[in-house]
Design a protein around this nucleic acid. Sequence first.
DNA 1: AGCACGCCGACT
DNA 2: GTCGGCGTGCTC
Length: 803
Amino acid sequence: MIAEIIVDVSAYPIDRPFDYLVPEALESVIEAGARVKVPFGPRKVLGYVTGLKQESALNPKKLKPIHELIDLEPVISGELLDLSRWLANHTLSYEIDALQVMLPAALRAKYEKFIVVTEPEQLLDADFIHFLAGRKRVPLKEVDSSSLMKTVKKYVGQGIIAVDTKVGQHTAVKKIRMIRIASHEKLQEVLSAIQSNAKKQIELVQWMIRHAEETLGAKTVMEQTGIQSTVLKAIIEKGAAVEEFAEMYREPDAPMLKDVAIPEVPTTEQQVALDKLAASADSGKAETFLIHGVTGSGKTEVYLRTIKHVLDKGKEAIVLVPEISLTPQMTARFKERFGPLVAVMHSGLSAGEKYDEWRKIHRGEVSVVVGARSAVFAPFQNIGIIILDEEHESTYKQEDTPRYHARDVAIKRSEHYGCPVILGSATPSLESYARASKGVYTLLTMTKRAKNQELPAVTVVDMREELKTGNRSMFSVQLADAIRQRMERKEQSVLFLNKRGFSSFVLCRDCGTVVECPNCDISLTYHRAHERLKCHYCGHEEQVPLVCPECESEHIRFFGTGTQKAEEEIAKLFPEARVIRMDVDTTRQKGAHERLLRQFSEGKADILLGTQMIAKGLDFPNITLVGVLAADTTLHLADFRAAEKTFQLMTQVSGRAGRHDLPGEVFIQTYSPEHYAIELSKAQHYEPFYTHEMMARKQYGYPPFYFVTLIQFTHEDLLKVADFAEKGSRYLKDNLSPDTVIIGPTAAAISRVNNRYRYQCLIKYKKEPKLTETLQQLIKYYRTDWIKSGLTMSVDVEPVSIY
DNA sequence: AGCACGCCGACT
DNA sequence: GTCGGCGTGCTC
């Protein structure tokens, strides 16, 4: 029997199956989707069985046998195996990367090299003998001095010692020690044999007699009896109990926040959506729905009830949410409804915890998974529905290889299972809404808030006017008044600061110089806490200059609107205000995010000040004011989606106010109040925004009118990168259809990162059947020739941003 | 990607 | 004469 195996080597010529002999002993157990350890050239690597067959086209002498079968039960199902092939092809990545992205990191291989002494009597080097200290097998990494390394090399050359690679797993299954207590009679027997001065032992056996034939955790036994582990050990040796190890799951302790009250009866709009979804789920067709529901319209309730419907039919559900809204408040709602049937996957879990959640899914112990992007690969076997909440979020696109979009994967999987996909959003992406308009997706609209609350009153504040009247602070008079009012009424305010882009940089007021990173063409961000400047791209760090590096003026200081600066201004304006700041700095610690939100929900602060991360999911009854300090930051990004992103953000943020009984009010501060993205987000007018934005996209030939693929080149040498980019785009122009537009090559918006120059070209097309094939050919040129000169090239099919 | 093989310069 | 530089080529 022959196995086709994809080996764990990310390289161009290796990106194909290799044939291996299946040892006879494994023939009856080996299955496609299992991991194996195989010899590959001179080393051993991990591989995935992708197929089994009787004959190989190769010379049988070339075939090597599989070294070891790691999984008796495949870790990749047949469906996921097909999906990985599609994914690799679609995103132009290696098949091995497509396979590994589906599994928790704990299942990926860890390689460790060992020195193995084969001819001990031939060892002569005194230092080396001393280093070995009698050992026959030593981890190679213990060899740290260069002289020892030399000796090792010499001995390897002479065949006196060998190097062996151990292929291991990252995280093991967590096991706990269990104690199975013997029978009553046996215990009596043990008891009579104990010397009378061993009081603790007697005490323990007597306790055990009361728990005869039970199996308890060793820890529990020691806690309950207050007896030392040595005593327990002695008793076990005497035969009073047997030690066992039980697999257990690491239980990530989620602090429970209270769920909002569930409306007893769905609203009419919810019911219409529910009926259609249920009918589709029962039909066995793969249908994609777009739920366009205003903030607070109760989309989550629709998800929950549809999941219930699907579970009742014995099927499973995948719920994807953006990482930042995957809060305990969010997951608690699912756990409350479906209890132990829910697995949660998010980046806050340790590798072991993620592996445990994955195993629960793999073994079929749960039926619902709630998670971020990668949960779309949940190893279910009978999926009944896949839901993407906040479908417009760019985090659904993975930014490194394989550069997949969770939406595409979800739809692909749904086709296999003949089940519906729900895309939900208050501000759908233009792509999705366009598809819904064309009938590719089924549109479900929810225009009313579930509890019939009014949408909050939105005021756009023109900051130019504020400046004219001499107000140089970050807070307009109107917003400051509104905050003051809330404090008097003991209501809460949320202040949103869009930190993306050029938030807090150091600027010379005399010559206008901005301090930039020496490695990347981007301004350095000022960090108040350490009084330093940091580059967000390469991590470069430096002191804040005292004089301008260009004109030596002393009028150089930080400028802009970081959360720390906003916090200081609040302290000046409202000295008595209790403020919680949420940004990357204050939420880095594990659990900090939840802790801060809980403090706010418990009314321990008047003002919540934060970045992106507070735009979503916040749902507390006492919030009646939302302020956007600077709406412009996203508006002026060098990206064709800038307006769309701004509109989405403004709408999301506004939705945080007045979700319950108290009416909400929103202030948006901007220097461009007349911009349609701002103007139309005031009343959450999605349709007019869509129409307007679609016109702009059509005019400039951007998605959804065209598909876009981005090719990026980087090199240390500006001239070389320009040359290669030119060659690349030349090749594309020559090989793609004449209707396809190739823009560039041009320098990227951030033209240098980490001392490497960046060039890119953009392929725009409506229909390009040869695209994958042509790109594959281009990649082949790159991988075989260009790569040697230090060039890197990456392909991003349908990128979310074109920086 | 690794790793071995192999062919030319500066040292014990 | 050998050690070691990294160019070339292969991995079932």
